[in-house]
């Protein structure tokens, strides 16, 4: 073992979606401060396997903060104590020796638990299917430089587009609202000339699908923005509200 930190984990265990679930406590020894949080879980799982117990299931893939798959609610906050950081990029140097760390899955009606700390976030995919795209078939495109896009607009669209779809916004929100996720996609396209033809229909469809998935509504607490690992701004939510209201009041189609 490479480190000398010890921590106690209180981890949510739930066999599947029909199980009620409960917390279980595991001490973990020999943790190095240079370890990532997930590597600390690797140690725990390695031990549980050799002890003949069930390892803790959790979602993770790229482990470099971009795929959006990791999703742990750590000590009352999505992705743990740091801002702008996913669970996989959280390192044990952010904790102290002998800390007790509570780890739970994202909790929302729209994100049912698959097992232990893994949840089903396909609601996000369905929201995307409802309008999170520009309808351009392959081969239709004109030359990439034929429409100049001002750097500021391009940068703002990019900032909205950096969303990794991890769901921390939903997890952080006391209402389990998905407004930040949905508005980031709506904004990205609303800010670009390519997104204009479908702008109105897009916001209506995406909001309708968001509501149908059972997410809560937005009460502007700002928790999503504070916890978003990519720093997506709630000004995107305002933009979506504006687009939604404006569209409702102005759309030609009845």
């Amino acid at each position: 073992m490479s480190g000398d930190m010890n921590v106690t984990l209180k981890v949510w265990r739930q066999k599947n979606n029909n199980d009620r679930g409960r917390f279980e406590t595991y001490p973990v020894q020999g943790v190095s401060p240079d370890m990532s949080f997930l590597e600390m879980f690797d140690i725990l799982n390695e031990r549980l396997i050799t002890e003949g117990k069930e390892p803790v299931a959790f979602d993770h893939d790229c482990r470099e903060g971009i795929c959006g798959m990791c999703s742990m609610f750590i000590n009352g906050r999505p992705h743990g104590p740091l801002q702008g950081v996913t669970t996989c990029q959280l390192h044990m140097r952010s904790f102290k020796n002998n800390d007790t760390i509570v780890v739970e899955p994202w909790r929302a009606k729209a994100f049912p638990v698959v097992k232990d700390l893994a949840v089903n976030r396909s609601a996000f995919d369905r929201v995307m299917s409802s309008g999170g795209f520009i309808s351009i078939n392959t081969g239709n495109a004109q030359d990439a430089n034929s429409t100049p896009i001002g750097k500021d607009d391009a940068d703002m669209a990019f900032a909205a587009a950096t969303c990794i779809g991890c769901g921390a916004c939903v997890a952080a929100c006391k209402n389990a609202s998905a407004m930040l996720f949905v508005s980031a996609k709506v904004s990205q396209f609303a800010l670009l000339p390519q997104g204009q033809p479908e702008r109105k229909q897009r916001v209506l469809n995406m909001v309708a699908q968001m509501d149908a998935e059972g997410f809560g509504s937005c009460t502007n607490t700002g928790a999503c923005e504070a916890e978003c690992p990519k720093g997506i701004s709630i000004s995107n939510i305002a933009r979506m509200n504006r687009d939604f209201i404006g569209t409702q009041l102005s759309m030609q189609k009845v």
Binding site: P148, A161, F189, Q194
Partner: peptide, 18 residues
């Protein structure tokens, strides 16, 4: 061309070009 048409926000210069 295809990606720009899809709304991929590539880096741009101040004149609006890629």
């Amino acid at each position: 061309d295809q990606c720009v048409a899809q709304g991929v926000p590539f880096a741009r210069e101040y004149g609006g070009m890629l």
